[in-house]
Design a binder for these strands. Sequence first.
DNA 1: GGCCCGATACTCT
DNA 2: GAGTATCGGGCCC
Length: 198
Amino acid sequence: MRILMPHLPRAFFARPTLIVARELLGQCLVKVDRRRRLAGIITEVEAYIGEEDLACHARAGRTRRTEVMYWQPGRLYVYFTYGMHWMMNIVTERKGFPAAVLVRGIFPTEGIEGMRQRRGRSTHLTDGPAKIAQAFGIDKQCNGIDLCARDSTLWIERGTPAPNSSVVTGPRVGLGSTPEPWLSKPWNFSMKLSNEPA
DNA sequence: GGCCCGATACTCT
DNA sequence: GAGTATCGGGCCC
């Protein structure tokens, strides 16, 4: 019997955020856009975990912006920052506990021409969180969508898991004045692709 | 490759 | 009103 639905199931996201973040490396983000597939391998992510984590938007509690982080795992949390950029996160853990993984880096594999059109350039298509949102056409309208729903046009597909030897961890990026210990938590995960320079 | 800086508007205090 | 989970252009290696 063939697998009918390629989506990673909700159980994948309903686990500790650091586990989900690590295991998202090597998986494939897919969007069906006007009947064409846009896809890429996830190469860099960051974990944001709960109201205690002072780098997490949920540090301010449940607000209109952070509402989706409190929903079931497998939802998309999309927010706007710096006056012009959208960011894409995947909600993790259990309903009622605000946590998510920010997708910071992708290696494009399908629909590259479409990404180039949206980005208005031919290189550096998805090597940053706002670039990913622009290349995949993700904005406020995508906030709260369910990556695990049967009829979703956006989902995570099983790829080739990143071997431990390719994974690097480090502090999260762009946190500015966030106090310790949160500023230095090694909750950024990235993988080196074998065809990239070391 | 790197550093510096301005753009820009939304969220929460 | 302040702060912001960034980007791209200009410049200099």
